[in-house]
């Protein structure tokens, strides 16, 4: 099973000179501008930023749903030209097929690949077992709780053995308790499958807790404001969120985002607590960041 799923040392995402503009009646609106990001094979990278900064736009471009206005998106050197099963995606709204049972949802990608039904049934059962959902395989999604739905969503995205997993605020609709559990489950799956993950969230704690690296975006038009490595050791535990190391990272990221949120709202910034942070600047001057 693990052999089928694990795509070891593959899944190198690169986004270069990326910008994306929407056409409107008043002319083009720049959503994302001059952005470079990368995800190394097996790395867990998050993108955080104020709402409307274009982080989801960026993710959708990596998924292949949006074409960059300039620049390129590549995965393992191959240019992204549209959605594909190589890049699994998990959506905030779960987006399970309501007319398919839990197992049929998980089987979907394998079915599209032409795998015979008995074989994909076995594969789906194993995967559901890993997520603790085997008892619910015959249920329709409507009957499930939000946390269960999103577990199915993740398992479905992983079933085809994609090179990378893209998640668009996947836990945004869940309550705090469920969210924490889902973060653990996702971490476990990621460590097991050694898959590259690009994770979009507005939750700073979530980003720090899960990631190897966090990109922080500026207010619209979005670009990368800072890249913050998260040196916390793994496996990570919930209690780590109280450590001074975690809190320092949190404080730093928080002020970066607050600054951008205020900018997005047209406000002024007064208080910044940037101490003890290792920030790589991306074409921004220090004054820009602090």
């Amino acid at each position: 099973m693990s052999e089928m799923l694990a795509n070891t040392s593959k899944g190198h995402i690169e986004v270069r000179n990326f910008s994306l503009a929407y056409e409107t009646i008043e002319g083009p609106v720049q959503a994302v501008t001059d952005t470079q990001i990368h995800v190394k094979p097996g790395e867990f990278v998050s993108i955080v930023g104020p709402s409307g900064c274009g982080k989801s736009t960026l993710l959708n471009a990596v998924a292949g749903f949006l074409k960059p206005t300039t620049g390129v998106v590549t995965v393992d050197g191959e240019r992204v030209n549209g959605p594909s099963a190589e890049r699994g995606m998990v959506f905030q709204q779960y987006s399970l097929f309501p007319w398919k049972t839990v197992r049929e949802n998980v089987e979907f990608g394998l079915k599209m690949r032409g795998m015979p039904s008995s074989q994909r049934e076995r594969a789906a059962r194993t995967l559901l077992g890993l997520a603790g959902l085997e008892a619910f395989e015959k249920q329709y999604p409507e009957k499930l709780s939000g946390g269960m739905k999103q577990r199915v969503g993740i398992v479905r995205a992983l079933a085809t053995g994609p090179k990378v997993l893209l998640l668009d605020e996947p836990f945004g609709a869940l309550d705090a308790q469920t969210r924490v559990i889902m973060q653990q489950i996702l971490t476990n799956m990621w460590q097991r499958l050694k898959i590259s993950v690009l994770f979009v969230t507005h939750d700073i704690d979530e980003a720090i807790f899960l990631s190897d690296r966090v990109y922080c975006m500026t207010a619209r038009p979005g670009s990368i404001k800072a890249e913050i490595p998260i040196p916390l050791e793994r496996p990570r535990q919930q209690s780590m969120m109280m450590s001074s190391e975690f809190l320092a990272l949190r404080r730093g990221l928080m002020s970066l985002i607050r600054e951008e949120s205020l900018k997005a709202m047209g406000g002024e910034i007064t208080d910044l607590g940037m101490q003890g942070l290792n920030i790589e600047l991306h074409g921004h001057s220090l004054a820009d960041v602090i």
Binding site: F65, G82, P83, S84, A85, R87, M89, S95, F108, M112
Partner: peptide, 23 residues
């Protein structure tokens, strides 16, 4: 979003029609 989910799972036009639009 369901259409996009299907595309991400490798579904082509015909399958999307049969598996998403129709149901």
């Amino acid at each position: 979003v369901l259409v996009r989910a299907a595309q991400c799972l490798g579904a082509r036009e015909r399958s999307i029609f049969r598996e998403v639009y129709f149901p």
